[in-house]
């Protein structure tokens, strides 16, 4: 799974970089495209199997996977264990609310602004938080997210604790509006694929190498001449902006926004999903989100106490696949060391 790097990509030693011997290299290369094709076809196939309800469910999985992918980027590659990522999702969602309240109806404007405003919030919060490390970083990001949560609770104009309903869907523009009931699904899928591809690419670029170096040994990176603080802040802002975009999409998906979207438990849940899938693994975030939300959905059918089996399953994963399900699958697939 090693990708060529910007320098020396074609050099002979890079060929030796194939320490990751895939048993089925062709399948491994095509699998992402196969998954993408299946996901794209799902809204068309679902009615034939009576699974219309699950089109909305998969859309939610995709949106949460966007947020989790951004968290995986800073947590898994950058070693920044942020416990306030849901705060940026909330900032994105409330940006959509603010624009709708102001009379704007363009989805692209709303989602773009959601990413921009969340990115600005991440820049301000990151500028302070990234001066701390370890448990202090966890606590300060949690504190900022809770400040945002209580700010949303106190904003009566936007529904306060009761939340805000988005009764009219945002306009996608041109032929996209009303062309098909599932257009929003495909738009979300396209955005999720683009975000995933972008983060995968960046994670294996020179910047990604530097970020992993910072995670492993920050002082050594300083001694090698890297502006560590600036590099971490850039990653934090990018992740915050993408989480904000996910928040904007989630607002459209739910047609409702409430402060609970940015409660600290949501941040913790995102962390759990990333860890479950495999922090620092390319497929970790989407796998973790899909696994968690699917199990939650299935277990709810059988018991009201679905947290119990889900908790037990999490324990099993922690003991048998401490590096996440993605790492387990990579080992089974004979691709040791793939990241």
């Amino acid at each position: 799974m090693l990708e060529p790097t910007s320098q020396g990509a074609s050099s002979a030693p890079c060929a030796a970089a194939a320490v990751t011997h895939a048993r089925f290299p062709g399948l491994a290369r095509r699998l992402p495209w196969l998954v993408l094709a299946l996901l794209a076809a799902f809204p068309l196939l679902a009615p034939a199997f009576g699974l219309e309800y699950y089109v909305g469910f998969v859309r939610r999985v995709l949106i949460v996977a966007i947020a989790a992918t951004s968290l995986n980027f800073i947590l898994g590659y950058g070693g920044m264990a942020a416990l306030g990522h849901a705060g940026f999702i909330g900032v994105g969602a409330y940006t959509v609310v603010a624009l709708v309240e102001a009379g704007f109806s363009s989805a692209w404007l709303a989602w773009g602004s959601a990413a921009l405003v969340a990115g600005l919030a991440a820049a301000a919060i990151g500028a302070v938080s990234l001066r701390t490390r370890g448990v202090y970083f966890i606590m300060i990001t949690l504190a900022f997210a809770q400040m945002l949560y209580y700010l949303a609770v106190s904003l009566r104009t936007w529904g306060g604790d009761d939340g805000y309903g988005l009764y009219t869907p945002l306009e996608l523009g041109a032929w996209l509006d009303g062309a098909h009931a599932q257009v929003f699904y495909w738009v979300v899928l396209a955005i999720a694929a683009a975000v995933f591809a972008l983060f995968s690419r960046v994670a294996h670029s020179r910047y990604g190498h530097a970020l992993r170096g910072i995670r492993d040994n920050e002082m050594r990176m300083v001694a090698l001449g890297y502006p560590v603080y600036g590099l971490k802040l850039a990653g934090f802002v990018a992740a915050g902006a993408v989480a904000g975009l996910a928040g904007g999409l989630l607002a459209s998906h739910n047609a409702f926004v409430s402060p609970s979207i940015m409660h600290w438990t949501q941040s913790a849940l995102l962390l759990v999903m990333v860890m479950l899938g495999g922090a620092g693994r390319r497929w970790g975030a989407p796998l973790g989100v899909a696994l968690w939300l699917t199990l939650e959905e299935v277990l709810k059918l059988y018991t009201d106490y679905w947290h119990w089996p889900l908790g037990l399953l999490l324990l099993l994963v922690v003991f048998h696949a401490p590096q996440g399900v993605a790492a387990l699958l990579e080992r089974r697939g004979g691709r040791e060391g793939a990241r």
Partner: peptide
């Protein structure tokens, strides 16, 4: 760096 390959060490 334990999680960078030899080649990544040299290009990063």
């Amino acid at each position: 760096f334990p999680n960078l390959t030899v080649h990544e060490h040299l290009v990063a």
